[in-house]
Nucleic acid binder design. Structure first.
Lengths: 150, 150
DNA sequence: TATTGTTATACTCTATAACTATA
DNA sequence: TATAGTTATAGAGTATAACAATA
């Protein structure tokens, strides 16, 4: 008699339990992205773009749309407003006159640094872990991220 | 000569590094909440409410607003649409005729179960971790969550 | 007098479609 | 013919304020 075996259909792996626990930790308080963005007079997608734009890096607006998983039409006004505040600027691309490269300005880099410092403040529960647990958690996550890059 | 010591102002703890790594892992792909919600013809806040509404539990609409960190006026239309689809229902509160208790229907519970199964699918990087790392990660996060409850 | 839930309204975010300039 | 970016527009989410019923 074949009885239903859930493990074949939807295995409950430790990774799955970890993912559920992460939701408990990360979305238990007020949404962090809108809150930190508001602190710096940014909208959430504006903060998202600043975060993705590494210092000294540049990317075409089309790539911005891809990384933000939004339609390209939104990127125009998003970039407009950040450019009005002189946090980023559009630069022509010598190799293709259709594309515009987006880069951080000096003040954009400064704001980005301050905003990311706030964004990466760990929830109280993580800070309350023992030093050994904190290090172990960090090291495991480092391995996970390196697996992604591989 | 007092040289700037960043560690006093903004300590770089392992928890902080872990938090940054978590962002890399969790917001690297398409936003998971909107994606999973769309799969079940839900908006993100609708999925959020279903997730918070445990099976068999009930909560006043005011509490819903608190847990979703949104204005109470939004909860009316949010609950309206979920009630039209018979996923939740409003029940009068015998002890206070002003409040309406929100509860899942049977079909609401079924949809919630399926949606959470999708929502908690770990990113590929977590699944790629060794079994030992997965268990260690889960156990550390369990300790963190228990610290929260304490 | 304060609180729960509702309604009306305005603002923002996002997507679709049509347009331009380049390739 | 296809692509990068823009514009116009409509739909959905969210907040503020005023309101009704109840405490």
């Amino acid at each position: 008699m074949a009885q239903p075996r859930q493990s074949q259909i939807q295995a409950i792996t430790p990774a799955r339990e970890a993912c559920e626990l992460l939701y408990s930790l990360m979305v238990s308080g007020p949404p962090v992205f809108p809150r930190v963005a508001a602190e710096f007079d940014l909208t959430p997608p504006q903060l998202h773009l600043l975060r993705l734009l590494g210092e000294g890096q540049s990317m075409p607006m089309r790539v911005v749309a891809e990384m933000l998983f939004c339609d390209a039409s939104n990127v125009t006004s998003l970039v407009d407003r950040l450019e009005e505040r002189k946090l980023i600027k559009r630069r022509p691309d010598p190799s293709d006159r259709r594309v515009k490269q987006i880069v951080l300005t000096k003040s954009g880099e400064a704001l980005r640094t301050k905003a990311l410092r706030k964004l990466y403040e760990p929830p109280a529960e993580l800070s309350a872990l023992s030093a050994a647990d904190q290090r172990a958690l960090r090291d495991i996550l480092k391995r996970a991220v390196s697996l992604k890059e591989a």
